[in-house]
């Protein structure tokens, strides 16, 4: 039957709830711990030299649900995998909790689940537990997803924002701002047309490739909401060091720059979902950069700056004309401006 939709009965815990899980969720995420349908998923821990766990959670509420380069499902998997990866962890398992709006088409739900399955496969991780609730029409927008993830950190890896050291090379894995601009254009709010795709991708294999050549990476962050500027500022604050960035070195696609010009946005504050910022010891920088550039998700990786002893807690941007200015974290929402 075409155009079947979620009803409140799907969330009542009875037969329909069971059918929804059996027909849609279980076959899609198909794995042993999930298939058991017990109250908790039981997952094996790889023994060996990884005695610390990374544990994270995030909620996803994007509008529209589908956009060029991704959808809410792909976002929910990648976001949590990336949070684990930024601690140097290998993901062991994810959970996914769904708030479904009454009236959501089952076709859309299916599409989101298939996309989640694909992203999880890319990341080499399974969704081992989940939950579903239905809220009445108007109480949500389509669906919301909360994912949580657990991962194991190799004993020789310690990555935190506080560890940035003077001399560290600051790198980004590719052009910034694609995700936020892609979603903004997909919303159609400002009648902008253009081919910008979200960068939404799981970064754990890129991080593994980097750690393989340099387990001593000091700091890793994925610049999601708040963008590059906010992440750099947070690392400067946490480490008590200064960060100097060469503005001309920060990669930005021309279409993203075009939208920023039109709306008066600052690209340093735009959200990314498949990029990372790495603070790497000076001597290892070339090696790490090469490893990044060999990886499909780091082809456009580049060094954008370095850590300094001076200007502690601040991010200084060197402008192409030879001036400098401070880069502050994002404050509030960026509104398009005419001035």
């Amino acid at each position: 039957m075409k155009d079947k939709r979620i009803t409140l009965s799907h969330g009542a815990g009875g037969r329909l709830s069971h059918d929804l899980i059996e027909e849609y969720f279980v076959p899609c995420f198909d794995n042993d711990p999930l298939r058991a349908l017990d109250d908790s998923a039981v997952i094996p821990v790889q023994s060996g030299q990884a005695n610390r766990l990374a544990f994270t959670t995030d909620s996803y509420v994007v509008k529209p649900l589908f956009f060029p380069g991704g959808d809410i499902g792909r976002l929910a998997i990648c976001g949590t995998v990336n949070d684990l990866a930024m601690a140097g962890a290998r993901p062991l398992g994810l959970t996914a909790s769904f708030i479904l709006e009454e009236g959501l088409s089952l076709e859309d739900l299916k599409q989101v689940l298939v996309s989640m399955k694909g992203a999880a496969a890319e990341a080499g991780v399974a969704v081992v537990a989940g939950d579903t609730k239905v809220v009445e029409h108007g109480a949500a927008e389509g669906l919301y997803i909360t994912t949580a993830g657990i991962g194991q950190i190799p004993d020789n890896v310690t990555i935190t924002s506080a560890q940035a050291k003077p001399g560290d090379a600051v790198m980004v894995s590719g052009p910034i701002g694609d995700h936020e601009i892609a979603v903004l254009m997909a919303r159609g709010e400002f009648s902008l047309q253009g081919e910008v795709e979200s960068d939404c991708a799981p970064l754990n294999s890129l991080v593994q490739a980097m750690l393989k050549v340099c387990p001593a990476i000091h700091s890793l962050r994925d610049p999601t909401r708040g963008g590059l500027a906010t992440v750099l500022w947070e690392i400067a604050q946490a480490s008590g060091k200064g960060v100097v960035v060469e503005e001309g070195a920060v990669p930005i696609r021309k279409e993203v720059k075009g939208v920023c010009d039109l709306l008066g946005f600052d690209p340093y504050y735009l959200a990314n979902e498949g990029k990372l910022v790495a603070f790497v010891p000076e001597k290892e920088a070339a090696k790490v950069l090469k490893a990044m550039q060999k990886h499909p998700l780091g082809k456009e990786a580049t060094v954008i700056g370095k850590v300094t002893l001076g200007n502690p807690g601040k991010v200084l941007l060197h402008t192409p004309i030879g001036g400098h200015r401070l880069l502050e974290p994002l404050s509030g929402e960026q509104f398009p401006r005419i001035c």
Binding site: L317, H318, T319, I321, G322, G323, H324, R325, C339
Partner: peptide, 16 residues
């Protein structure tokens, strides 16, 4: 003009 003010700060002209 305020757009000049922003451009002056963004480009770091005052520091030069």
């Amino acid at each position: 003009c305020g757009t000049h003010t922003v451009a002056i700060f963004r480009s770091g002209i005052r520091s030069m």
